[in-house]
């Protein structure tokens, strides 16, 4: 990889890390979700800083060109992330349903108690 490209990629990733850390700091992103990005960012920068590291890994894994390996790894990671998000979403949906149910049941109970009270008051 050319020196210019390495520098450009490094800058983009440093910027992304800063954005992520800033979001966590402001409470817009949970730390648990940011860890994935921070760790992968750190690994990427280390890999970029070691000369010939990427081409050595490419040869070791048997990919013909560097870009193929990078695309492959990125797609696998993206799939993993989507699955993770869907799991998280399902969990939230389940929580949401039980919240709606509990609130509705409570509301019914409150109305029943109010109605009973009104009846008693009218009876007096």
């Amino acid at each position: 990889m050319s020196v210019n490209l390495t520098i450009a990629v490094a800058i983009i990733f440093v910027l992304m890390m800063l954005i992520i850390i800033n979001k966590v700091r402001k409470g817009k992103l949970q730390l648990a979700y940011s860890i994935f990005w921070i760790i992968s960012g750190i690994i990427l920068i280390i890999v970029l800083l070691i000369p010939n590291c990427i081409s050595n890994i490419t040869n070791l894994l048997g990919f013909e060109v560097i870009s193929n390996m990078i695309f492959f790894i990125t797609i696998v990671m993206a799939f993993y992330l989507i699955l993770q998000l869907m799991t998280e979403l399902s969990k939230e949906a389940k929580r949401n349903v039980s919240l709606i149910q509990e609130i509705s049941l409570l509301k019914k109970r409150v109305t029943d108690i109010e109605n009973e009270k009104n009846k008693e008051n009218k009876g007096e």
Binding site: V97, I100, Q101, I103, S104, L105, K107, K108
Partner: peptide, 9 residues
């Protein structure tokens, strides 16, 4: 006698 769900489930 009814329960009114606050959102459609």
């Amino acid at each position: 006698n009814h329960i009114n769900l606050i959102k459609n489930l």
